[in-house]
């Protein structure tokens, strides 16, 4: 891996678009599809995942020289699971309503490929500072897409955004948007738009 190091700014920004976990690498799709039926849920899931990602990246980057190669995945999972439990208990203790609406998807952050993927691909090979920046960028990119998905689905499926009713009584909500098919359709359009923009940039 004799790659030249990219700038610190690039380390954060890459997670927002070029290597965006949802739009470019399609990692962590389960929570992306499952809980984005409202903008608040998207925000909460984005923040919870970012917290776990950032903490795990920090710890694994610190411990990267101590963890034997053969047991690295097991070690990562133990560390990730610990932080997921912390996040889960935090939500249940301080935001019981959000905790209830996210249901089993907070504990399921353990198996989010995005988190394990960043540990294996980045934090285990990079210094603490860079691992943190990577975590911030990826977490931010993940959260922003989840919030955007939540906003679109909530607007079309419930006529509101962040619980504030925007579309009047004339609007008959498209129930499908808050159901699983709506998640797939919206995500499909998001990815299509992202690819279209990339194509235009490439040809321009």
């Amino acid at each position: 891996m004799a790659k030249k190091q990219i700038s610190i700014w690039q380390e954060i920004v890459k997670g927002l678009w070029r290597e965006n976990p949802v739009l470019a690498t399609l990692l962590g799709l389960c929570p992306t599809l499952a809980v984005t039926n409202t903008a608040v849920n998207g925000l909460a899931m984005g923040l919870a995942t970012s917290f776990v990602l950032l903490s795990s990246s920090l710890f694994i980057s610190i411990l990267r020289h101590f963890i034997p190669h053969q047991v690295r995945i097991a070690s990562y999972i133990v560390i990730i699971a610990a932080f997921v439990t912390v996040a889960d208990r935090f939500l249940a203790g301080f935001f019981p309503v959000i905790s209830q609406s996210l249901g089993p998807y907070v504990p399921l952050i353990v198996v989010n490929c995005l988190i394990l993927g960043r540990q294996e691909a980045f934090s285990s090979k990079n210094k603490i500072g860079r691992s943190l920046l990577d975590g911030i960028g990826m977490g931010l990119g993940f959260s922003l897409v989840l919030i955007a998905l939540g906003m679109v689905r909530e607007l079309l499926g419930s006529g509101s955004i962040f619980g504030i009713t925007l579309l009047g009584e004339w609007f008959e909500p498209w129930m499908v948007m808050i159901l699983p098919p709506g998640a797939f359709l919206t995500l499909g359009f998001f990815i299509a738009i992202a690819n279209w923009i990339n194509d235009r940039r490439a040809t321009a």
């Binding site: 008959e172 498209w174 499908v176």
Partner: peptide, 10 residues
């Protein structure tokens, strides 16, 4: 099918 899922009552 999209309409059925969107407007189950209508």
């Amino acid at each position: 099918a999209f309409l059925q899922a969107s407007f189950p009552i209508g």
